[in-house]
Amino acid sequence: MRGITITLASLLILTLISVVFANYAHGYMVFGILILAALKFIGISFCFMELKKAHSFWKVGLLLFLVLFMISVLFLAK
C-alpha cells in the first residue's frame, strides 16, 4: 500500500514538472516531455496495474510499445 502511495506522489510531481518544462525549457523540450511521460506510463502500468507481477512477455511487450512510440514521436518531431 505504501508503494502505490509513493508512486502516486511521484506521478503527480512528474506531471507538474512536465508542464513547467514545456513552458520554460526549449532546447530539449520534446525529449524531456516524452521521458517524463514514459516514466508516468511505467509507474501506472507496473505499480497500479501490477504488471510487475506478470510474466515477462507482458512487461517486455508494453515496454516495447512505449519505446517504439517514443522513438517514432522523437524522430518525427526533431
Binding site: 514545456a22 516531455i33 516524452l34 517524463l36 511521460a37 506510463f41 501506472i44 512510440f69 514521436v73
Partner: peptide, 11 residues
C-alpha cells in the same frame, strides 16, 4: 491519457 496529454497539450 498519459500519451494524449503531452502530445496534444505540450509538444
Amino acid at each position: 491519457w498519459l500519451l494524449l496529454f503531452p502530445v496534444i497539450y505540450l509538444l
